[in-house]
Every structure is written in structure tokens, then in C-alpha cells.
């Protein structure tokens, strides 16, 4: 009965204050969508790191005929130079850092290139001679890339040593910046949401001052006076959080699962599973913020 009564009060509060409630729902929805987006982008980075860091290698590109690198003055790499590099990779000084390495010839490079740019017209025009041969080195600890670079950069026949991780880092830093932007927008929007919840509760307390005045006089407990207002804020935020979760799910489902993941098969993408990990936190965040904000407002604007 008591619960029913309080819920009835909540219902009447929501109805009477509908426009404010709708705005709280929308602002919470937008702000939590940004929070969720940032979280998902970070998860995407983690996902890609886990997937790629195992596969990326340090590539030691060898001189081709037309290279202008400092070690390539004598034209294309010779058999001897190639052998020296290979034995260097197997030497005691280098071995502890190297997990394994393999040689990639021009023909193999072409095959890989064609695979990678399957849909591009470029793959048709490139020939094996235009691609450099290389050693693909997997490192025990990818952070030790500098050592390999120092050792091999100066060797004859080596054009350039490239850490493929650096390319990935660029992608990650772009995603990182995007997620920081999202967090920044989310921060401002959350501030808006908190203030708006406060204003809404204040207005609601004002609209219902007759009821609360009478409730106080006939001896309503502090909790039964405050609970309808707090629930009003929390329910609005909850709806907003559910909307945000729904939109994130739809975005991941239709943009990533159905499109990006199909277009780029060799890249790891987050999926709706990640959304289900993020959504409970969004809901918790929304509910806690709204609850705290309403309680703080009531402390000032509702006499108990």
C-alpha cells in the first residue's frame, strides 16, 4: 500500500512536470550516449591492440634497385648482404629479442599486397619489382624495437627498418583523441543533466508544495516525503540511460557488425557484447547522478 502510494505520487509528479521530465530524459540520453561512445572506443583500441600486437612485426626492408637510402648506394641488395643480415638476426646479440623472423621475397610481398588491397585498382598495376624484399621480425617484447632498429639500420643493403606498431599507434591516437572529445562533450552534457535534474526536482517540489506541506503536517516520514521526488529524477535518468544503451547497441549492431566488420575482415572490431558490458555502467551512472542531484536539491528546497 505504502509503495503503491509513493509510486502514485511519482506518477502524478511525472505527469505534472512532463516537459521538464522529457528534457531530463533527453539530456541524460545524449550525455550517456557520449560516455558510452568514449567507453566503446577505448574498448575498440584494446581489442585492436590485442589482435594486432601479436601480428605486427618489425619490417627490415632491403634495398631495391632504385632505393636512395644511405645504405643503398650500391643498388639492390646482394646475396652476401642478405646472408649477413640473416646471420645477424640469428646471432647471440639479437636472438634474445627475436621471437622469430622470416624472409619475404618480392613475390610474396606482391601476394600480400594483393590480398590487402583486394578491392583497389592499385593491386592490378603493381608488379613484384616495385615492392621491396624484407625480413619480417617478431619481437619477444615489442617495446624493444629501438634495439633492432639501431642494429640493422646501418647495415649495408638495409633500406629502412619500420616498426609497424607505429602505424597502428597513429590509428589509436586518432581514436584516443575522438574518445577524449567524446568524454569532454559527455562531461559538459552530464553537468547539464545534473543541473537540469536539480531544476526539475525544484520545480516539482514547488508544484507539489501543497501536498508536501500537508504530508509534513500529518507526519510523513522524511523518506516518504523525499522518495517520490528522488524517484522522479531517477526514473527520468533511467529512461535516458536505457535510450542511450539502445542507441549504442543499434550503432554497433548496424554500423560495425553489419558494415565495418564485413568490409574489413582482418580487423578486430567490438561487437554488441561490449555494449552489454558498457550499458549497466551507463545506467548506474545515470541513476546515481540523478539520485544525488535530487537529494542535494531537496535538502535545500523541500522542508522536512
Amino acid at each position: 500500500m505504502k509503495l503503491g502510494f509513493i509510486l502514485g505520487e511519482v506518477g502524478s509528479g511525472l505527469r505534472r512536470n512532463l516537459s521538464m521530465v522529457v528534457s531530463v530524459v533527453l539530456v541524460t540520453f545524449i550525455s550517456l550516449t557520449f560516455v558510452g561512445t568514449a567507453a566503446l572506443m577505448q574498448m575498440q583500441i584494446t581489442q585492436m591492440k590485442g589482435y594486432w600486437y601479436d601480428k605486427v612485426q618489425v619490417a627490415i626492408y632491403l634495398c631495391g634497385e632504385h632505393n636512395e637510402g644511405t645504405n643503398c648506394a650500391e643498388g639492390a641488395v646482394t646475396e652476401g648482404q642478405r646472408g649477413e643480415i640473416e646471420s645477424m638476426l640469428g646471432s647471440a646479440a639479437v636472438k634474445p629479442y627475436v621471437e622469430n623472423f622470416e624472409y619475404e621475397s618480392k613475390e610474396q610481398a606482391l601476394t600480400h599486397f594483393r590480398e590487402q588491397f583486394e578491392n583497389s585498382s592499385m593491386s592490378e598495376t603493381v608488379t613484384a619489382d616495385q615492392l621491396p624484399e624484407s625480413f619480417r621480425v617478431s619481437l619477444v617484447d615489442p617495446e624493444k624495437y629501438q634495439i633492432i632498429k639501431e642494429l640493422f639500420s646501418s647495415m649495408d643493403g638495409v633500406d629502412v627498418v619500420v616498426d609497424q606498431r607505429e602505424l597502428l599507434e597513429k590509428i589509436f591516437s586518432i581514436i584516443n583523441i575522438a574518445s577524449f572529445v567524446a568524454i569532454g562533450i559527455a562531461g559538459v552534457m552530464i553537468l547539464c543533466a545534473v543541473l537540469l535534474v536539480g531544476t526539475t526536482i525544484r520545480l516539482s517540489a514547488y508544484l507539489r508544495r501543497r501536498e508536501t506541506g500537508i504530508m509534513r503536517l500529518v507526519g510523513a516520514s522524511k523518506s516518504s516525503l523525499q522518495l517520490p521526488f528522488v524517484l522522479e529524477g531517477v526514473i527520468s535518468a533511467l529512461i535516458g540511460a536505457l535510450l542511450a544503451s539502445g542507441v549504442l547497441w543499434a550503432a554497433v549492431r548496424f554500423l560495425i557488425d553489419d558494415k565495418l566488420a564485413l568490409d574489413y575482415k582482418d580487423t578486430a572490431f567490438i561487437s554488441t557484447g561490449e555494449v552489454f558490458m558498457v550499458a549497466p555502467w551507463l545506467i548506474l551512472l545515470g541513476v546515481v547522478l540523478a539520485g544525488v542531484s535530487s537529494l542535494v536539491t531537496l535538502r535545500r528546497y523541500l522542508k522536512v
Binding site: G213, I214, G219, A220
Partner: peptide
């Protein structure tokens, strides 16, 4: 200080609902 949107019965009942009757 009656509640204008409640009828006579509801106004009186309100006091009892509030204390959880």
C-alpha cells in the same frame, strides 16, 4: 489547504495514506 484535484474522500484518505495506513 485542501488538495484541489482530490475529492473529499481522497483528501481525508491522503492523511492516512501518508502514514502508511
Amino acid at each position: 489547504r485542501l488538495l484541489p484535484q482530490k475529492n473529499v474522500f481522497e483528501n481525508v484518505a491522503f492523511a492516512m495514506q501518508v502514514v502508511g495506513e
